[in-house]
């Protein structure tokens, strides 16, 4: 492991991508952040299995392909192979059903509320060994 994790940020809101990226940069959490406004493109990048990130921050409410569908799809991609990364889901409205649903996926480590709280994230990063 390098000393800082790399990130994929996936969110259909351009503004929220910007906010999350700024938070990560300001707290010097990562030097490698890739932004995806379109989940389909992010999925293609993950399917290639090249340059995979350490952590994926994933929005739930996206009209084209929502966060849960996205997780289903990447689980299929890695059905027969291993992966190192973890998914952290983000949502502007925490719903207990969403939380249950998110955590039922082993690939999902946590569901966090928007806007991203850096203290929460840093605790998670510690738990993940960063």
């Amino acid at each position: 492991m390098q000393n800082k994790p790399s990130f994929f940020l996936i969110d259909d809101s351009r503004i929220d991508l910007f906010i999350t990226k700024k938070f990560l940069q300001r707290h010097r959490v990562s030097d490698a952040i890739r932004l995806f406004e379109n989940p389909t493109e992010a999925l293609a990048a993950i399917e290639s299995k090249e340059n995979l990130p350490d952590i994926i921050l994933l929005d739930i409410k996206m009209p084209e392909l929502d966060g849960f569908e996205f997780v289903d799809k990447i689980e299929k991609v890695f059905a027969d192979s291993t992966h190192e990364f973890k998914v952290i889901m983000l949502s502007s409205t925490l719903d207990f059903r969403d939380e249950e649903r998110a955590l039922s996926h082993p690939i999902v480590f946590k569901l966090l509320e928007k806007p991203l709280n850096m203290e929460d994230l840093q605790i998670i990063l510690q738990q993940l060994g960063w």
């Binding site: 929220d16 938070f23 300001r26 409410k61 502007s92 409205t93 928007k114 806007p115």
Partner: peptide, 16 residues
């Protein structure tokens, strides 16, 4: 749900 999304963006920006 939909209305909360831009509001959370605003709060995030204010914090930044």
């Amino acid at each position: 749900h939909e209305m909360r999304a831009p509001l959370m963006s605003i709060l995030g920006l204010v914090k930044l």
